[in-house]
Design a protein around this nucleic acid. Structure first.
Lengths: 125, 125, 125, 125
DNA sequence: GTGGTCTAGACCACA
DNA sequence: GTGGTCTAGACCACA
């Protein structure tokens, strides 16, 4: 479920938090589901429990999970967060596309990238 | 020409290198133009010459600038680098768009963003 | 393992990087082995940690070592680099031999040097 | 006769001295021939006369040229130097070949390089 | 404990 | 004046 890339420039705790954010936003981990315990995950990934703790602290602070005294952490209801995350992605894409425009990437190039990514038999639109 | 954001998580030398990369790729700093001297820029930005030095070392290593003994650093011919940078931007955009797709952003949403950014009287395509 | 020549014209960081390159290419430092920490090596060689840092930064950039967050630097798998290094040595030898030819060194002189160096009971060929 | 490579890591004065050493050792500039004047060469190469001066100072100190008060610099008789230079080249080649041996370059590889370089219709041996 | 960033400041080679 | 190297030392993030 969680994989660590030791070559990555991202710190471990951020990699872990990122991964959980995605899993939660996509509903793979649904609301009210229990998160793996800090210790079990630390063992599973062979990393320091402090690092897991730090990732969970961020997730809690952002509203992705909530702790239950003596029982562990649980996935929160993230409907609001999902919308916020969507907006953030769109804003980032806009920035990137603008940079590309300045580097000479044309409208058609972007359109064809989008068409390619949205093809594959799906009808997201 | 160069501004420093002390709030940013990016190290100073990287901010400086990033900024110069953009200026060079966009042709604001054309090939063979002399770069500001390490010391003058250090004074101008009120940061340590070592930090400028480090930024310049990266730019040199990446092929954006070249040193001339006893005279300073000069902007290199970056046609090849520009193409590489374009590819990188497209790849990043692809990643971002894919994430957006997973978060429920539709094809039309992306298309309308692109249309908006490419309108403005220009005919890049 | 590492020695510094203060008479040399080569900067310290380059001497250190050179030495490690050799040790790694020859397999004395095998892949995945931990490198001495920046600080311990600085103490051992009585030079500034920044200088070691610089040497390590080069080695990393060249692919000889890789950093692991919070744990230190480790020797990379350098099979590809070894081949590249071999090619470089051959090219340098070619240049040198050509210069020698121009200075009147004969084919037999070179052959006898090679025979002497490759004798010693070994059968590299 | 002399070309400057501004990309080279070698300082200009060393490039110039190197080039003259080669020309003198090969007899292109024979003993007692006058060297180009410092000023004329500086103009021709568009570099600072101090740099030429420095190159000539090294050449004089090594015995390749000698100054005649009020008349300029002249090529010295370099028979002895040629032998010394030959020895140096052989020693360097030996070092390089040894390194190559350690990197797995075989005797045959070296032999074939030498054969290739000494073929070309010449009979240096 | 590990590396990464940065400052202040010195000293040097080169042109 | 130009960059390059190095020291001493501080401070920080990460594991």
């Amino acid at each position: 479920m969680i994989t660590i890339d030791y070559q990555s420039k991202l710190p471990l705790y951020e990699q872990i938090a990122d991964r959980f954010r995605t899993l939660i936003l996509r509903g793979v981990l649904p609301p009210r589901q229990q998160m793996p315990s800090v210790r079990s995950l630390a063992v599973e990934l062979s990393i320091n429990p402090n690092t897991i703790q730090k990732a969970y602290a961020f997730l809690e602070q952002e509203g992705y999970i909530y702790p239950v005294r003596g029982r562990g952490n649980y996935v929160a209801d993230v409907t609001a967060l999902a919308e916020k995350s969507r907006q953030k992605l769109l804003a980032e894409a806009e920035q990137l596309i603008l940079s590309g425009k300045e580097m000479g990437i044309t409208r058609s190039e972007y359109i064809s990238v989008i068409d390619r990514l949205y093809r594959e038999g799906e009808t997201d639109d």
